[in-house]
Amino acid sequence: MPQVSMTVNGKATSGTVEGRTLLSGYLRDHLGLTGTHVGCDTSQCGACVVHVNGAAVKSCAILALEADGADVATIEGQANADGSLNVIQQAFQDHHGLQCGFCTPGMVMSAAALLKENPKPTERDVREYLEGNICRCTGYHNIVKAIMAASGQDVTAIAAE
């Protein structure tokens, strides 16, 4: 079986995988990074979003071998160096942007990618960017609000928390 190597959350990793092993499977089963979730098998739900070389990628939609040599970031590497929640994570907690928590890692990773390319997104920008991330719990209200708050915008005018 082929060997794969990649940097994950700043650490060098390597493993032996089947050709058909997905990046999500490598992260979860080989590295034990179970924060990346798999919620579907058609690359629709976005629970598995990670960053590959800085870009948001659905890790169920690429093979582990395709990420050979890549720099990968997952939800486990998002907190601040002192372990505290980063700005986006903190905004999700402050604005109740998660309930069951299953879609949350993908939401946070997508939000980070959005804010990198669009630091002050409008409500419409956020909603359209999240097209590829499904949440069944929140009705999206507090997710959109959290992401706008994380961008430094005043969200107090938005209806109830």
């Binding site: 629709q44 499904i134 009705g139 959109v144 609000k145 938005i158 209806a159 109830a160």
Partner: peptide, 19 residues
């Protein structure tokens, strides 16, 4: 699958006013 069953996405819904 989610290719055929239309789950509501963020841009299908507005903000809600809850009292």
């Amino acid at each position: 699958s989610y290719m055929d069953y239309a789950m509501p996405r963020a841009d299908d819904v507005p903000f809600y006013a809850v009292d």
